[in-house]
Design a protein around this nucleic acid. Structure first.
Lengths: 261, 261
DNA sequence: TTAGTTCAAACATAATTTTTGTTAGTACTA
DNA sequence: TAGTACTAACAAAAATTATGTTTGAACTAA
């Protein structure tokens, strides 16, 4: 991770705690010049995380409880890459797969670049972008409204698009998974679309980093029984494990033979 | 333009002339190592421009007569920027505008970033990408199949998407304009979609670099009378000028007060 | 086969771009 | 109005990317 990203994460943590930060304090704590902090802050302001004030910044009330995309993308990156490498084992040449928006999904998309014949369907322009120059993978992008900062397409057009298609495999991203509430998402609308896509897929595979185990976000996507496989970076605790097992969900964990060299 | 781009353009010109190139000849002509030429060639192979052979490469038969996006993007860049700067004068805050795929359109999209309230509708993921982090501009992306190397969305989904919407202004890209055949495009399907969008827009503005004057591509988009404004980098010759005038098309040329400092 | 090329991989070096710091002059705040 | 924070412009440093070189393997044509 670049050092400017690290700084920005720390700044956001301070905002979480105190709602406010000061330029001079941050400069001292992070041992960089004030100018650098100002540049970080104006960058964070541009993506809607905070609001600049004279001498510092205050936290912006966010659209939802979801941390911004730019932050989520770098978080748990190694785990996401592990999960992605495990996920490709469920894909065979010629498949029609849906790659959800979400940060784990981008890592999966990168892995899929090495396939030759595939139909990839996605509501994420980041994923689409990755395949622009690939000559033989067919990519369908759902229409819709672009969610600021996320690069994901949402809304009626998106739903309507997916309603008309059927798929082999749906690689689902979710905000949380729990034995009680199943899979959940931050935004109602997103949850509804994911539920619909899952119902059109032969197989639904959830890509979930272990930090999301036994948590619950706002909106229900679907109960555990609606998904076929969960791929994560480590085995969940007993309760969730049991719930997955009793709902006939396969749990797939990558074997880590020195992946992190 | 980066030197590797210059080299790649020269390589493509050679391919146009001779259908084939040799690694050692190119290395000598361009005064770089053979390894560099090999890297250029494998890059060009990846985007489908050519096919590697032992010692060189042969031209790939292209999908159409259209040069590849990567090449078009850098061609006539200064003119496109001039045109884009002129085009924003036709946009006011709050408008609903369609930004076509195409290389001039990307320059226009960059200019639009400075607006605060706007609804932008586009079949180009490059354009969409530009707006991902903009907090107040609403972006609608048409669904569709991703055209390799172009980043544009095409097909039935695209058409269906645009059929349902109406717009203030459509900034149209085209392959050519002529007094005889009006506006034309390389691909039939693209032409049909552009025609449809134009019919849903209050005002259609064509962005056309002057190298496209009095040329004709394969597929008719629409006659001159269907467009309201043509923006270009210089005044067309008498015949096209007259045709535009008699079809009540306004011609808009940027005034070049030392733009190229 | 074999001699002469061409190739790809790995590393070293050069060039470019991005990030950060500094300075100087302007704007804000108490 | 003094003191601090700000922006813009430039300089320096760091990181990234592009290119060259070397090596040994793979290909081609006699």
């Amino acid at each position: 991770m670049s050092s400017s990203m690290k700084r920005k994460q720390i700044i956001q943590q301070h905002l979480e705690n105190d709602q406010t930060v000061q330029v001079n304090e941050l400069a001292q704590e992070l041992s960089v010049s004030e100018m650098t902090i100002r540049r970080d802050l104006s960058e964070l302001e541009r993506i809607g995380v905070l609001k600049r004030t004279h001498g510092g910044a205050i936290k912006e009330v966010s659209r939802s409880y979801e941390p911004p995309f730019s932050l989520r993308r770098s978080r748990h990156l190694e785990q996401k890459q592990l999960i992605a490498r495990e996920a490709v084992r469920f894909v065979t040449e010629g498949d029609t797969v849906v790659i959800d928006s979400g940060t784990s999904s981008i890592e999966l998309a990168k892995e899929l670049l090495s396939f030759t014949h595939l139909t990839v369907i996605t509501p994420s322009i980041h994923t689409a972008m990755l395949f622009t120059d690939h000559p033989t993978i067919e990519v369908l992008v759902s229409g819709g409204m672009l969610r600021t900062g996320e690069g994901s397409l949402v809304g009626d057009f998106t739903r309507h698009f997916f309603e008309q298609l059927y798929f082999d495999t749906f690689f689902l991203s979710a905000a949380a998974i729990s034995s009680e509430s199943g899979l959940t998402e931050y935004i109602q609308e997103d949850a509804a679309i994911k539920r619909m896509i899952a119902s059109h897929a032969k197989k639904t595979i959830a890509l979930i980093t272990s930090d999301k185990f036994e948590k619950t976000a706002f909106a229900r996507i679907c109960p555990l029984q609606d998904i076929d496989v969960v791929i994560s970076d480590r085995e969940p605790a007993a309760q969730l494990s049991a719930a997955l097992h009793s709902n006939h969900v396969e749990m797939s964990i990558p074997s880590q033979q020195g992946e992190n060299l």
